[in-house]
């Protein structure tokens, strides 16, 4: 059941973004920024966490979930450390995702060569 929920919710988020892309002709870079910022807002107003409880990876895997993680990190840090937490929480929260992408991406540049696009 939780797998079906993840499939449907994750799929639907992608469909909404697809429609947004086709209607606005926004470039992918802008779309990704928009998603993360929206995730922060949805997290901050308290909507995303219950939604993620329901949908699992369907809500945490899209970049909206990444925004929510940033918000959760800031909130925890502010609760624990006050003002200084504002400067710690974000990077602490996204450390795993960003580090993994940078490290593996860098290692990939040693291993792989540029390819011609197929399509």
């Amino acid at each position: 059941m939780e797998f079906i929920k993840a499939f449907i919710v994750g799929g639907l988020i992608c469909v909404l973004v697809q429609i947004l892309m086709e209607k606005t002709k926004l470039m992918p870079g802008r779309i990704m920024v928009l998603l993360v910022c929206s995730g922060v807002v949805l997290g901050a107003v308290g909507l995303y966490e219950p939604f993620q409880e329901f949908a699992g990876a369907g809500a945490s895997v899209p970049l909206l979930g990444f925004g929510n993680v940033l918000w959760k990190g800031i909130k925890t840090a502010v609760d624990e450390e006050g003002v200084l937490g504002l400067f710690k929480g974000g990077f602490t929260a996204c450390a795993v995702g960003v580090s993994a992408a940078l490290l593996f991406g860098y290692i990939a540049s040693w291993i792989f060569k540029p390819h011609m696009k197929k399509k």
Partner: peptide
Amino acid sequence: HFASAEKQFRFPLEY
């Protein structure tokens, strides 16, 4: 060249 133009004007090819 498709690849050099794509790289300059659009995205890296693997993107």
